[in-house]
Design a protein around this nucleic acid. Structure first.
Lengths: 104, 104
DNA sequence: TCGATACATCGAAGTTGGTCGATATTGCAT
DNA sequence: ATGCAATATCGACCAACTTCGATGTATCGA
């Protein structure tokens, strides 16, 4: 942030994105997903690392997904999540001194 | 995020930093500060741009300051705030695919 | 000293957020 | 169909957040 002037809606959208990152559990979920060799994990593999109940983990994953920070893919009974690198890069751009902007 | 494994305290600290960015008013305050020619503004210059009361603006600035995102300098009756570019850069690093690391 | 201005603190109201247990839904295998 | 395992939804509780008006504190000028 930020060379150019942010419109009010842009500020709201940006804040919403950061809000998804504003919880230790969600940061840990992202970190865990990013460290998987295949880049993904299902919900049942995510409850143990963060030490919370399955409904709570699902809740956090939904928040991350709504913010575009993770992608969701259902395969059979399982739901796999993976980090959206593009979205992270977009947020990095928003924090840049000169403000990059591509993606969105 | 993140090649290396984040310790629990690191995840908490990172989440706390993003929480400071997780409000439209604070995003707008940062944006406003970053766009000043001298890089700074006092509280009384910040209430109008965001359209909130002085106590509320002070409150948000304290949150940003606690997170290290702005620096505070009192000169006479006025208190001037400026964006901490170093802190922003550190957060950018935390979002990087390979995870940079400097900062704390 | 007195008044005016800038900023901080306090207390309250209303809203949002994280978490859980219980329960519903979905999909696979038998 | 039936049963089991994975995930989602629901309702509730408590904590945290945003905002305000009222008030306190500090600094400057007359």
């Amino acid at each position: 942030m930020f060379q150019r002037r942010l419109k009010e809606d842009d500020a709201t959208a940006l804040a919403a994105a950061f809000k998804a990152l504003a919880d230790p559990t969600r940061v840990r979920l992202l970190n865990f997903l990013a460290r998987q060799s295949n880049g993904e994990a299902c919900v049942c593999e995510l409850t143990a690392p963060v030490g919370l109940s399955q409904p709570t983990v699902t809740h956090h994953l939904q928040i991350l997904n709504s913010a575009g920070l993770v992608e969701r893919e259902k395969r059979g009974t399982w739901v796999y999540y993976r980090v959206s690198q593009a979205r992270l890069e977009a947020l990095r751009g928003a924090l840049a001194p000169g403000d990059s902007r591509r993606s969105g």
